[in-house]
Design a protein around this nucleic acid. Sequence first.
DNA 1: GCAATTCCTACTAAATCGATAGGATTAATA
DNA 2: TATTAATCCTATCGATTTAGTAGGAATTGC
Lengths: 137, 137
Amino acid sequence: MLSKKTKYGLKALTFIARTGSDVPVQVGEIAKSEQIPQKFLESILLTLRKSGILGSKKGKHGGYYLRKDPSEILMTEVMRVLEGPIAMVQCVSLNFYEKCDDCPDEHLCSVNKLMIQVRDSTLEVFKNTTLKDLSLR
Amino acid sequence: MLSKKTKYGLKALTFIARTGSDVPVQVGEIAKSEQIPQKFLESILLTLRKSGILGSKKGKHGGYYLRKDPSEILMTEVMRVLEGPIAMVQCVSLNFYEKCDDCPDEHLCSVNKLMIQVRDSTLEVFKNTTLKDLSLR
DNA sequence: GCAATTCCTACTAAATCGATAGGATTAATA
DNA sequence: TATTAATCCTATCGATTTAGTAGGAATTGC
């Protein structure tokens, strides 16, 4: 299941992209419009800023803005920041690989085999979807 | 992330399929070979039996066996039994649909749009993979 | 009757999730 | 320069889920 963090994060990014401007958008505005607990959203946007997807401006009239054009923000990047590994098992993860402690040989493992396929097909979707695609109504 | 339950369940099913016979396989044998805590595995195989994927024989020389040929056991079925919904959000699930409480209109929701694609591509993998495929080395 | 197996219920420790609380820091503006 | 409004940061917390464990009842083969 998708975490609320990721869900809220995607909605917030979409909201910002849909404004179509470079003027910073405030957390409160997004929280109200998307029905997201404001404090929770704050921490999510902070994560997105630290990862470089969002930029921020502090103080009065501050807020968050996209650091790239929506058409250049891939879902692979967003999902990895918000949700973590895209693969369903670590032994199949491209960016977060770790050997299974129980599995003696990955190449004989049926779970490994299946999850590679799932990873690749999911990756295909994320690689071909940008924030611009999400923001189109 | 895939739960251990699902991981162990898939490994156990593969193990049983690989025996290639109708003689019941004992939990202890699978647990030992696949390095799975026996009591935990017991409960998993019980779930698979209740769902109709496995059959069982009690008492001495008892154990678990497949109720269908491995080539007829689809991953869609196995995954739904072990892991639950295939979709990453309920509002996109075919078998476990539920409306999001926060989302006023699914058709305008960017998360919905993205997760439908992920669901379909994952489903495509599961629909085209059988236990037989997994059991081939 | 005994041994070996599945079946069933209940419990538990640890981790994760979904927040909330409280304030520090920064920037615009009057 | 004081005020206000925003982000930034750390810490905490209750609820839920996960990954088992414990103990024994029921069933079957010999």
